[in-house]
Amino acid sequence: MDRRDWIEKRKHIEDRESKERAIVEKLLPFLEGKIVAGYMPILGEVDVTRFLGERIQYLPKTDPRSNRIRFEKFDHETKLEKGHFNVMEPPIDPLSDPSQIDVILVPLVAFSNTNRLGYGKGYYDRYLKTSKALHIGLAFEEQEGEFMIQPWDVALDYIITDKRILAKKRGDNYECCYK
Rank of each mutant, 00 (worst) to 15 (best):
D5H: 15
W6Y: 15
I7H: 03
E8V: 09
K9G: 08
K9T: 03
K9E: 08
K11A: 15
I13P: 00
I13Q: 11
E14P: 03
E14Y: 07
E14H: 09
E14T: 08
D15L: 09
R16F: 03
R16Y: 11
R16T: 04
K19I: 01
R21M: 09
I23H: 02
E25Q: 15
K26Q: 08
L27F: 00
L27I: 02
L28W: 14
L28V: 14
P29V: 08
L31F: 14
E32R: 10
G33K: 03
G33V: 07
K34T: 05
I35C: 02
V36Q: 01
Y39L: 12
Y39E: 04
G44M: 07
D47R: 08
V48I: 08
T49S: 08
R50M: 03
F51Y: 12
F51K: 05
F51H: 14
G53Q: 02
E54W: 01
E54R: 05
E54F: 03
E54N: 12
R55M: 13
Q57Y: 11
Q57D: 09
Y58I: 06
T62I: 13
T62D: 00
T62L: 09
D63F: 15
R65G: 13
S66D: 11
N67V: 02
I69P: 02
I69G: 00
R70S: 10
D75Q: 10
D75I: 07
E77N: 15
E77T: 15
T78H: 06
L80D: 07
K82E: 13
G83F: 09
F85S: 06
F85Q: 14
V87T: 06
P91C: 01
D93H: 14
L95R: 03
D97V: 10
D97Q: 13
P98C: 15
S99Y: 04
D102M: 04
L105C: 01
P107L: 10
P107F: 04
L108F: 12
L108A: 06
L108I: 06
V109C: 02
F111I: 11
T114F: 03
N115S: 02
